[in-house]
Design a protein around this nucleic acid. Structure first.
Lengths: 200, 200
DNA sequence: TTCATTTTTAATCAAATGATTAAAAAATTT
DNA sequence: AAATTTTTTAATCATTTGATTAAAAATGAA
């Protein structure tokens, strides 16, 4: 029986390069050669370790979807925290995740658009948006408004600046520092705004 | 001297097909053969009329950017309307544009991400975000908050549902009718919410 | 060291893809 | 109608790209 242990360092180099290139350019615009070059490795190694571009992409995408939904899922389903507390937890936590990974939302959203069938099962967004504790609490507070409206606002106010970041950068309007400053300000502002919406 | 007139019908068929395929799949994932097939025409005609995939894409993209910024630009720079009036004009007008062209925001934003250099000049977002009458009026009302914060909220609350639409569709959570219903409700809700933010 | 196994590389393949060409078909002019 | 120009088509090119292969290099076991 042959040795099966694989050099973790090389494997990790490839997937790290794949994370970077896929999230920057999207699946279709990414060449496997781009990834190999970014990793500083021979192209054939990519297929040796991950079989195909598609498989490597699936790994990265699963990771990224996990990041995008992973932070909020436990908060949203905690029945020990109030609606108010949830908002105060979600906003800064989510903004921090996005600050660490600014390209994440646009990457995930555009890939889902490009290949909706492939993600219909994997995205557990449905449960969060219909059966979560948060939804129940929103309905208690505002029975006459579809709770999805508030969730769209809460997530949208967090995510939207990151989705439009390339526009700001292309127009030279915001550098990285002033963008981050803007997001820091939003950590308290969004909480205030969402509470205003819920109290009126 | 030969006749230079070109059959507008064929040309229009191609660009209409290009609009559809490019906005659905993005530049990189679009094959010129997809466009030709969608138009029901020979592939070579695409190059006969538009020289290259790149040129055809530039035309479509210019159109789409125009649609995305064209509706709000005149409203935003009108110094005869109040801040309140501007919000009441922008929200339903913008939501109607997006209802007619739901894929528009995700298409434009992801293409700008994929090729930022190419759009640095063309996007006049900079002026709207710094020199518009709207910005001055926002600063009068709330001198202590970066007006960009409110613009992000106003545009984000309009655009974000359309950016996440593929997720809703993939998860089977919303059909087209209930999505449109959600947007219709937002026409009045967003106006109310933005006013709340500005008054507190 | 020797030998087997694993990892890496250079070369190459086959399919896809943007684009061109030359000829046919259609339209327009004279 | 004849001639000229414009439009359309089928065939083909050259390049790119995901993937494979066979051999070399590195690693670990005996």
């Amino acid at each position: 029986m042959a040795k099966k242990k694989i050099d973790a360092s090389t494997e990790e180099k490839i997937i790290e390069a794949a994370r970077k290139v896929f999230t920057e350019k999207g699946y279709a615009a990414t060449r496997t050669r781009d990834i190999a070059e970014e990793a500083g490795l021979n192209l054939a190694l990519l297929n040796y370790y991950f079989r195909s571009k598609e498989k490597l992409f699936s790994l990265v995408m699963a990771e990224k979807i996990g990041q995008l939904f992973g932070v909020i899922a436990p908060i949203v389903n905690d029945d020990k925290t109030s609606l108010q507390e949830k908002i105060e937890l979600i906003v800064p936590a989510y903004l921090n995740v996005l600050l660490q990974n600014p390209g994440l939302p646009l990457f995930v959203l555009s890939e889902i658009r490009n290949n909706p069938e492939h993600f219909s099962n994997r995205v557990q967004a449905g449960k969060i948006l219909t059966q979560s504790v948060l939804v129940k609490q929103l309905l208690e507070k505002q029975p006459n408004v579809n709770p999805l409206q508030f969730i769209l606002n809460l997530l949208g106010m967090c995510i939207f600046p990151f989705v439009t970041k390339p526009v700001f950068e292309a127009s030279g309007l915001l550098n990285k520092a002033s963008f981050n400053q803007l997001i820091e300000e939003r950590k308290t502002l969004i909480v205030k705004w969402v509470n205003l919406m819920l109290d009126n």
